[in-house]
Structures are given as structure tokens and as C-alpha cells.
Computed example of a mutant assay.
Amino acid sequence: MLTHPGHQEQQEPDDSAAGYRVTFPRMFAPPQRQVARRLAMALGVLLLTVLIVYLDRAGYKDSADDEPLSLLDSAYYATVTLSTTGYGDVVPQSDSARLTNIFVITPLRVLFLIILVGTTLEVLTERTREQIRLARWRKQMRDHTVIVGFGTKGRSAAATLIGRGVPKERIVVVDPSRKVTEAANAEGFTAVVGDGTRSTVLISAEAQRAREIVIAAQRDDTAVLATLTARQLNKAARIVVAVREEENVPLLRQSGATAVVTTSSAAGRILGMSMLSPSAGEVMEDLITYGSGLDLMERTVTKAEAGKSPRACEDLVIAVLRGHRLLRYDEPDAAVLEPTDRVITVRRSSAEPTRRNGDQQTR
């Protein structure tokens, strides 16, 4: 049973239940390469066995011929021995040949069989390995980020989080499309195939223990249901939701969303700004695109900045977060920074100098 402060106990989800499945990022070799590698290993074992038999050919007897074994006879004996066919027409007769069969050829036979049945063994053990990995993952997953919907908005949110230093291992993607979750796995994310409006799916993503939940569904009604479900599971998480229509913002806030981003209105504002002032639109696009040019950052006030004006900070401070109040930098209450404040600043991206240097070198 899993518990969370202030929550009712949640039953450990069963990954085999219908409707969802947790998948992990993995790197697969192409099937042709796997088959070729195993065939090469089997051929290597066979050639090694042929060489061992041929070097000690005087210690073997062929019932059909009194002559020492030829290379063909050695290959024949190695083949029937490794495949456990054993016709008995060629047998080890000397002590050295028998000892070689016991301590060398028999282990090679076992290795040969393991290589040939390796695919079957892998299939039989795959489920067990996945269950062990899933159990370990559930124990370790705390204070992570869940992204519901991995379309354009979800991918952009993930890219921004990664740019801010969040490891991919701390991001879990939820999407109903198996192709989308497979693409997320290929990019290094753990993914859950299922409907993000269902509590069982969000529980399988450990949303009840997440620190942040990003809901980037394609439809507003889906976003509302997913927000309600997520807030019911996790009372403390920060839930950020993207919607198309501004009229749905109050409903989402009532449903438990911490912040709501109206994509259509935001895009329209940038369009209007770009029409009136293309440069202003370019700066706004730069600010919301993390990793190039100027970046918007939220950070705590340093000891050196406490007691000073926001204008005295090294970064350009545009807002002050004091408790639950968001103050503009020019408001009287924000004239002096307090040690417990957080500031919203504009700073040059850390990647920008490197990029500019690279541009200069290219030129």
C-alpha cells in the first residue's frame, strides 16, 4: 500500500491490468544484428571445437576408417557432438581425448546450446526482469514530474525542464498512444500508455507522489478531467495546465490547477505584438524559448541581495514572489528584498556565449 501525507491509501497498481502499461527507455539492437551476432558466436564455438578435435585427432577412432581423423572428420564430430546428436561412429579413445571431452568440449556444448536457445530464454525472463525493474522504479520515484500528453506542448515542456537541469529519469510521460510512448522511450523517458483522466493510469505514473504535474492534453475537457483526477490523488503537487479556450480557465482553477496557460490567447497576443512591433515579438519569443538568448528564471534571493532594491541585483528583476503574492519590481512593497523572497529575473542563457563563439568561429 502506498501513502502520501494528507491522502487516502492508494492500492499498488497492477501493471498487467487493462488500460495502461508502464514502459521504460531501452536501446534495442536491430533484430538482424542480434541474429547475426548469435550466429557468429555459435560458429565461433563450432570452429573452436573443430580445432581442438583436429589437434588431438590421433586420440579419436572412426569406426568406418582406421586412419586418423581428417579435418572433415573433425568438423563432423564437432557438429554432431555440439548438437547432442552423437551417432557413435567417431569416439574419443585416448585418455587425453576423453579428458578434453570432459573438461573442454562438454562446456562448449553447453555454451553452444545456450547461444542457440538464447532468444527463448530471453523471452521467458523478460517479464520477470520488467517486474523487478518496475518494482525498483516505484520505490525510487519521489518528487518527480508527470507530463500528461506528449504532443507538441508536452514535448516543449519536457525540453524546458531538461534545459533547467531536470534529469530525464525524473520525468514520466502519460499518453494514450502507444506510438507516442514508444517515441518517448526512445528519447529516454519512462512512459505510461493510458488515459490520463483515469486515476489508475495516473497512479501507475506515481502521480500521487509527484512534485509537479503538467497537463498538456489535446482537448480542454480532457484537461479538466485530468486536472480533477490529479488533484484528487495529490493535494500538494503543483499542477500546470494548458488549454485552448480562455473561458475554461476558471473551471480549471476550480478543478485544482495551480497555473493555467491559455495557448490560443498567448499565441494571439504574441501575434498582435509582432504586428505592432516585430522586435518586441522577437524578444518575447526569445524569453519563452529556453536555452538561447534571454531566459526567464525564478530563484531565491541571495544573502548579498537581501535588504536591497530589485534594481541593485546583478540580474534584471521583473517581479518578486513574496509568499503567495506576486509583486512587480516597481511596486512599493517590492522596494526592498526580503531574505525569504524569490525573484523572477531575465538573464542571458548560459548556452548563449558558447553559441555566439561558435558562430564567430564559423564566420
Rank of each mutant, 00 (worst) to 15 (best):
5 P>D: 10
6 G>E: 07
13 P>C: 04
15 D>V: 07
17 A>Y: 08
23 T>C: 04
29 A>H: 03
34 Q>R: 00
46 L>D: 02
50 V>G: 08
58 A>L: 11
63 S>F: 04
65 D>H: 07
66 D>F: 12
69 L>S: 02
72 L>C: 01
80 V>K: 03
86 G>N: 15
89 D>C: 01
92 P>S: 00
96 S>R: 11
102 I>G: 00
106 T>C: 07
107 P>M: 05
110 V>R: 13
110 V>L: 15
123 V>L: 00
123 V>G: 00
131 Q>Y: 09
134 L>S: 05
140 Q>H: 03
146 V>N: 08
147 I>K: 07
151 G>Y: 01
154 G>A: 02
156 S>Y: 02
156 S>M: 10
161 L>I: 03
161 L>K: 03
163 G>V: 14
167 P>R: 14
176 P>Y: 12
178 R>D: 08
186 A>I: 08
191 A>I: 06
195 D>P: 10
202 L>Q: 08
203 I>C: 09
204 S>V: 06
207 A>I: 11
214 V>K: 07
216 A>N: 09
219 R>D: 14
224 V>K: 08
227 T>R: 04
229 T>Q: 01
231 R>L: 10
235 K>G: 14
236 A>W: 04
237 A>C: 04
242 A>G: 10
264 S>K: 09
264 S>C: 08
266 A>N: 09
267 A>W: 00
270 I>S: 08
270 I>G: 10
272 G>W: 11
276 L>K: 13
278 P>N: 04
280 A>W: 05
285 E>W: 10
286 D>R: 02
287 L>G: 02
289 T>W: 01
295 D>A: 02
297 M>H: 12
305 E>P: 08
311 R>S: 06
316 L>M: 06
317 V>C: 01
317 V>H: 02
320 V>C: 13
328 R>S: 12
331 E>F: 07
332 P>K: 05
334 A>Y: 04
349 S>C: 08
349 S>R: 03
352 E>K: 11
355 R>V: 02
359 D>E: 10
